[in-house]
Design a protein around this nucleic acid. Structure first.
Length: 512
RNA sequence: GGCGGCGUAGCUCAGGUGGUCAGAGCACUCGGCUCAUAAUCGAGUUGUCGUGGGUUCGAGUCCCACCGCCGCCA
């Protein structure tokens, strides 16, 4: 059957900054979504990458005495390393300095140009290098000649710019939003985007002559495209825009863009407008999330509150961090904060949640079941009862879990899945198989518990790829949890019994 | 200044179209169990659902005002 397709993206990360848990937050969620959709048997494409052009990179490189390309190479590599550490299953990693991207950007903007939506004008005004954006004289004066965002002095720039006639898209965008009420999630963010559009849109400058580190404007090579229009295009480069029309058609526009609220304007206004101007359909869905705060504050280099994934995965004595492992890390960022509002990371909160959900509930369930199977069933796991009271719970849990993933709500999805774990612990207490003599009664209870572990392993595999694979193996099943297909694999009663159950070391050792 | 939103147990939060809506998890208390990673299970406490009015037979749930917090835009 021609399965559905699921295309998910993270923003591409700018290579002036090394990867911290804010980057990881978005990327882990995208990864879990991709894994969930693979479980559903959907053809899935998961894209992340790095954004490497622009004056800021040019300057950082110069300061480091290296070429911009070298600068980009080094930092881009840092991102790839972290994603590898975190078990990120991206299908592609795009870099905006790749030739395929140059071709794609040039093709897209040439098309927009051919369609009459790009125009050359002279521009001058106060410019912030850090923002790579012009400000109005009024804004400049109001902030004493400094950037409203960075507080650093604005520089006077004057150059010929190509302008994108964004103003002509006010109405088309409003119509698109009207026709696609769920395109931007959550609704509050949709309203913000609509607010921006309703105010009326002005044409925007999309090229620079003052810098060289960018993609040349094809019809006027003295110009390079402003980094943002270069960056947004990555989402279509990776699926063959301008190079492989057939491939492009298969993946576009059924895309889910994940993005932080700071880049809402670019994604929810400029990007759809650019696509409309090129005669391409806007993206199917834009999922906007809040900031991941640390101690209630935005992470920043100057505030010294950045946290790096490896310090939590492997532990860091100096910082007093325990080693949560890859899955412990992933679980925290998927489970602790609802997707959408700002979330606040705290080490204490992470520790509490890890111990409660992973060590006590899930890890300990596996541990106690394995022990009793060893002592009462000779180490061979019995089959579940078809009429188990847990069967109904499992069905409800699957439905809730699936609905939550479909709504891009990983925290709710995991919360729903964990209900099955609690019910299984409760079921064990109710029947106390460790007190019974070996026999059908013991087999029934333990078979049910093993079946819960099987189902949980599948449902939690997008969050915990490594440990669910381990559970799968320890209860004697072959293959991996991630290879299963939903919804079939969530049906009650598939654990066959007669398999060797292995005790093994604690899956999630308690941390203090 | 314009437009959104928020304020529910100690903590983090659920609670479409008003009538088991007073909830979940964590924390806490008591009790059980001792298979298990001092894990687990059961029971329970805490709330004037920001404040004051209003509509209604009946309002966290609708309306108005106010207080406090925040976001976006200008």
């Amino acid at each position: 059957m021609p399965s559905q397709r699921f295309y998910v993206t993270t923003p591409i990360y700018y290579v002036n900054d090394i990867p911290h848990i804010g980057h990881a937050y978005t990327t882990v969620i995208a990864d879990a979504l991709a894994r969930w959709h693979r479980l559903l048997g959907e053809e899935t494409f998961f894209l992340t990458g790095t954004d490497e052009h622009g004056l800021k990179i040019q300057r950082v490189a110069a300061a480091n005495g290296i070429s911009p390309q070298e600068q980009a190479d080094r930092t881009s590599e840092r991102f790839r390393e972290v994603w590898k550490l975190l078990d990120i299953s991206n299908d592609d990693f795009i870099r905006t300095t790749e030739p395929r991207h140059t071709r794609s950007v040039q093709a897209l903007l040439q098309q927009i140009h051919d369609n009459g939506y790009i125009q050359k004008r002279r521009y001058s005004g106060p410019y912030c290098v850090a923002c790579e954006a012009y400000y109005s004289d009024a804004e400049s004066q109001e902030h004493g000649g400094n950037c409203p965002v960075h507080g650093t002095p604005l520089e006077h720039f004057e150059e010929d710019n190509y302008f994108f006639k964004l103003s002509e898209f006010t109405q088309p965008l409003l119509e698109w939003y009207e026709a696609n009420p769920h395109a931007v999630q959550p609704e509050g963010k949709r309203n913000e985007a609509l607010g921006l559009i309703r105010q009326g849109l002005e044409d925007i400058s999309i090229s620079r002559t003052s810098i060289s580190w960018g993609i040349p404007v094809p019809w006027d090579p003295g110009h390079v495209f402003y980094v943002w229009y270069d960056a947004l295009t990555n989402y279509i480069t990776a699926i063959g825009y301008g190079a492989d029309p057939e491939r492009f058609e298969t993946w576009w526009p059924s895309v889910h863009h994940l993005l932080g609220k700071d880049i809402l304007r670019f994604h929810c206004v400029y990007w759809p407008a650019m696509l409309l101007a090129a005669g391409v359909e806007p993206p199917h869905q834009l999922n906007v999330h809040g900031y991941l705060l640390v101690g209630g504050k935005k992470m920043s280099k100057t505030r010294l509150n950045q946290i790096f994934p490896a310090d939590l995965v492997n532990g860091n004595e100096k910082l007093g961090f325990a080693a949560f492992g890859v899955d412990g890390f992933r679980y925290q960022f998927l489970r602790d904060n609802p997707f959408g509002p700002d979330g606040d990371f705290s080490y204490e909160g992470m520790l509490t949640r890890y111990n409660a959900d992973l060590a006590n509930n899930l890890g300990n369930l596996l541990s106690r079941v394995a022990t009793v199977v060893a002592s009462k069933c000779g180490g061979i796991g019995p089959a579940p009862q078809i009429a188990s009271p847990l069967a109904q719970v499992a069905k409800e849990v699957y439905d809730e879990t699936a609905a939550a993933w479909a709504a891009t709500a990983p925290s709710r999805a995991l919360e729903a899945t964990w209900r099955l774990i609690r019910e299984a612990n409760s079921h064990l207490e109710a029947h106390e198989p460790w007190k019974l003599d070996p026999g059908p009664a013991v087999d029934a209870v333990l078979g049910d518990a093993l079946e819960v572990l099987r189902i949980v392993a599948v449902l939690a595999s997008p969050a915990l790829p490594t440990t669910t694979a381990e559970i799968w193996q320890r209860i004697g099943l072959s293959g991996t949890a991630a290879e299963q297909r939903l919804p079939e694999a969530a049906s009650w009663g598939l654990y066959p019994g007669g398999l060797r159950v292995t005790k093994g070391a604690a899956l999630f050792p308690r941390l203090s």
